[in-house]
């Protein structure tokens, strides 16, 4: 059973904007997955559909095997949501906000109060529990929303850009906290613009852009793939047989064209030495750019 399984999910907003173009997305139990993508990619839309804040146009969503079309309440009980925008009543006190949320999930008030205290303490907010929440700092407000999302002890925690606008120190402590609760068994999905965040936290990552999931898999493998460059070599003479090029992944496109993957740590001179040793002469070379790399560059440079 998957914690989340999405198939053929599409969303067209009332104004005609196509936010999702049929995405498939799976998250295993206990995983820590990033949904990584630039502004307007469709991250919040996807999360909105999972948490029933947005109507889907087509497709299926299952949360721990509960289809949101047929078992909405059971699916909802499994999920805790930390939204992108502040969505609590800023005139209420943090403690009341968390206790009330427990109540909405059917948790008796007494237990709700115990849990609220527990999670507000875990998120270092206990000394603020009786203040008006409008007066909390931005980082505190985010942590309050994390405490609120955990109060019914969900199996799946979804965070929509939890660290946006949070300073490095608090970001790190938030990361540590999320890692800890993930180890304790809670499945986590978080959206982010930052490759660094995905890299630090998430074993798996799905990259989304323009309403499509471009690639998903293990973060490390993906990064490895992203950190290689593909060069296209045009050769002077047709090649009868591919020479052995130790350490390089080479494919022969046609008689006079080779594609070589070179990781950023490899030295390209060595490649040419190996080639000339076998008397292969290179006429010209160009860098092959694919969409993933382009996106990757945008994400790394933080342009979003």
């Amino acid at each position: 059973m998957q914690a989340l399984s999405i198939h053929g999910l599409t969303k067209t907003y009332g104004n005609g904007v196509v936010a999702l173009k049929g995405i498939d997305f799976e998250v295993g139990k206990g995983e820590f997955t990033a949904l990584l993508g630039p502004n307007g990619a469709g991250k919040t839309t996807t999360i909105g559909i999972i948490t029933s804040l947005v109507n889907k146009t087509a497709g299926t969503v299952k949360v721990f095997d509960y289809d949101i079309d047929t078992h909405m309440d059971l699916a909802k009980s499994c999920i805790g949501l930390v939204p992108q925008e502040i969505n609590f009543n800023q005139f209420e006190k943090p403690f009341d906000i968390v206790v009330n949320q427990a109540g909405f999930y059917g948790i008796p008030r007494k237990l709700g109060k115990q849990r609220a205290e527990k999670y507000l303490k875990q998120l270092s907010l206990w000394d603020k529990h009786d203040d008006i929440s409008r007066n909390l700092s931005g980082g505190m407000k985010r942590r309050l929303m994390i405490a609120r999302a955990l109060v019914h002890e969900p199996k799946l925690l979804i965070l929509d850009e939890p660290t946006a606008g949070v300073d490095i120190e608090i970001r790190r402590s938030m990361w540590d906290f999320l890692k800890k609760i993930n180890k304790e068994g809670i499945t986590i999905i978080l959206t982010t613009h930052y490759l660094e965040e995905a890299e630090n936290l998430c074993r798996r990552v799905a990259i989304i852009d323009h309403g499509e999931i471009i690639v998903q898999g293990r973060t490390r493998e993906l990064l490895e793939k992203l950190r290689t460059e593909t060069f296209v070599l045009n050769l002077r003479k047709p090649l009868a047989q591919l020479p052995p090029l130790d350490g390089y992944a080479v494919t022969q496109v046609d008689d006079t064209t080779l594609e070589v993957e070179v990781s950023k740590s490899q030295n390209i001179n060595t490649l040419f030495e190996l080639l000339s040793k076998d008397d292969v002469q290179v006429l010209s070379m160009r860098n092959k750019v694919n969409r993933l790399e382009e996106l990757f560059v945008r994400l790394v440079e933080g342009k979003g």
Binding site: T51, M72, S77, P83, N87, F88, N89, F104, Y105
Partner: peptide
């Protein structure tokens, strides 16, 4: 309307409360 305007109606929308 206040809960819509301040978006905290979402607290109820995401909960399993019918």
């Amino acid at each position: 309307f206040g809960s819509k305007f301040g978006h905290y109606i979402e607290e109820l929308q995401v909960s399993p409360l019918p």
